[in-house]
Write a protein that binds this DNA or RNA. Structure first.
Length: 109
DNA sequence: AACATGACGGACA
DNA sequence: GTGTCCGCCATGT
């Protein structure tokens, strides 16, 4: 069994183009239902070192989490380039774009 | 070991 | 819809 961090990274790497997942959802699949903050940490520390599709990770309300305007716009642009519609407040239609892995957590060694 | 950090989540008013 | 508050927990110092 890999660490929470490793499993979370694996999950993030497997989010399909044009789909999104929430922090809490990723934490849940990685085996820690209330580990959303760890996912945040991972993106902070790993997004620069690994080539993770960090832009496909949003908060539970279906919005981009960044407060920083520049970063916010960058993520919005990334998502729109993949065909994901994002309104001006950063809101995304989870019903339509959220990815639901069919592989259970056990499969993520 | 104690403390701070973090792009969060959920419950509530 | 908004804002506040508290719980969460791996990691870094």
């Amino acid at each position: 069994m890999k660490s929470f961090t490793e499993r979370a990274i694996t999950i993030i790497e497997n989010i399909p183009n044009g789909k999104v997942m929430t922090y809490g959802q990723i934490a849940k699949y990685a085996g820690s239902p209330r580990g959303a903050r760890q996912v945040v940490r991972i993106l902070h520390s790993m997004s620069g070192k690994f080539q993770l599709p960090w832009h496909r990770v949003i908060n539970s309300k279906g919005e981009i989490g960044f407060q920083d305007e520049v970063q916010f716009k960058r993520q919005k642009t990334f998502l729109e380039s993949e065909g994901v519609f994002v309104n001006n407040r950063g809101k995304i239609d989870l019903e339509y774009y959220q990815y639901h892995p069919e592989v259970p957590p056990e499969e993520y060694e």
